[in-house]
Design a binder for these strands. Sequence first.
RNA 1: UGGGGCGUCGCCAAGCGGUAAGGCACCGGAUUUUGAUUCCGGCAUUCCCAGGUUCGAUUCCUGGCGCCCCAGCCA
Length: 553
Amino acid sequence: MSTTEAPGSSNFIRSIINEDLESGRYDQVITRFPPEPNGYLHIGHAKSICLNFGLAAEYHGRCNLRFDDTNPTKEEAEYVEAIKEDVAWLGFDWGEQPLFASDYFAQLYEWAILLIKKGKAYVDSQSAEQMRVNRGTLTRSGIDSPYRDRSVEENLELFEKMKNGDFPDGSHILRAKIDMSAPNMNLRDPAMYRILHARHHRTGDTWRIYPMYDFAHGQEDSIEGVTHSICTLEFEDHRPLYQWFHKELEIFAPQQIEFARLNLSYTVMSKRKLLQLVNDQHVSGWDDPRMPTISGMRRRGYPAAAIRTFCERIGVGRSANWIDLSVLEDCVREQLNETACRRQAVLKPLKVTITNYPTDKVEELTAPNHPQQPEKGSRVLPFCNELWVDRDDFMEEPPKKFFRLGPGREVRLRNAYIIKCDDVVKDDSGEVIELRCSADLDTLGKNPVGRKVKGIIHWVSARHAEKLEVRVYDRLFNQENPDKAENYLTALNPESLQVTEALAEPTLREAKGGETFQFERVGYFTVDSKESQEGKPVFNRTVTLRDTWAKIK
RNA sequence: UGGGGCGUCGCCAAGCGGUAAGGCACCGGAUUUUGAUUCCGGCAUUCCCAGGUUCGAUUCCUGGCGCCCCAGCCA
């Protein structure tokens, strides 16, 4: 599965891989997607997933799913499961078992000892604060730790005790001995191992020390034979260190390649902020349909194929980018237009009575499930003299370009007759509460001769309508870039969720969780797989239809 | 004012010395029992700026300008 999409346009990563293959530096392509299980995956991760798994498939290589679980204070098994589900749903296969950084803890520990013995690592006993001060600044070099020249024996002994849990958190730390005056801050004796008396989701209480990202990631890649280790731009400064460990340890050296992370308008992408949205209950959870998480989008009704298309379409480069939400929505519509069956449902009901239609008569009209795909079949639409239409499809004083219902106007009822608005009934407050119309009963499946009726509106039989809960979603944030607000929370869109009731054609009652329909002229709606019940589906608005009338207005 | 990057249409993005792909958005127009879809057509004499090399530069060189990342015992 997964790579049915058209091959993407060229990008700098493919160029690098081609060169590496031609030069013989590597003879295959092995990549990896290395999430930290400290939150749910979002659309930015999808970009990385599609890139890594996509490249591996393209070059007939392999892509590992490897959890970078080196910080037990932030990671949980729940996240591991959620991440696996999301990657699989996106359509990618990581082989028999996912891998874990924690699988390599013993090896990493041995390598740390090797570096100590080589005089390339030492135990520092400064406080975190002292270390920070002594690290210097961007423009001023750091100064050596007073513990920098401890003997190998002493370092070995202290590190052993760190491992055994003899010291409290923060009392000592293992550092690589590189250069405290390096202009690249990452080379100023970076931390390799810290003491953490924390229970790890997989190794339990086995370890009291845990490796830092820099001392773990490159070696994990090396162990797995990863040839191209693709990460985001902020790790570019870490590359010299990534390479330093491979060289000092004399192990297989993968090539790290950095690309620009995804930014999407009207959303935030940092895990910290997404976690806060969840914890402070601005959303119902990581999988709230308004979240930019994979699970949120899945619940919202975004097809996996649409997300894959999106990731291919936005390309991959090294310059900061800000992708417009419309690109994603276009991918979703493109996919759903092909796959979703058509239905009729009214969200803002206005009563219509067909005055010349027998009160006790009910007709079963036939409507195609997909006008462009007859093979999708059809369904039955009951029609009687009492209907609901959408309030937006009637105007008492319509402007010239409005070709829907108005006093004396004619309109086509989708899949049914042409009707004419003869009377407008109002309540005491002057609000329109009913339209009394007459139908041209000779217009079923054909157009009248001598006049043409341009307007077409959707409707539902009032006596057969199902009342269904519909959740109308809008963008979670009002501002294109929530991060530029004083506090991104102030940019939250208070109307991002409107719960309402739809009056829908009877067939919709049987809709199953995860199914998506196009409510004609309105948008795509997907049955919420979490909160729907048998015979009582709850619909999430996935995305609206394009609406050029809205622009004309 | 240290180091590392980036700068091609409103937003992405190809281009790798030979005379500016594509997508989204936008604007026209055709078809349409969804103002949807589909379909045609338009949309950078110009590639951050200034010099230079060259028959020829978005592509090479030099100098500017602008933006992003780095001072976690996070990843």
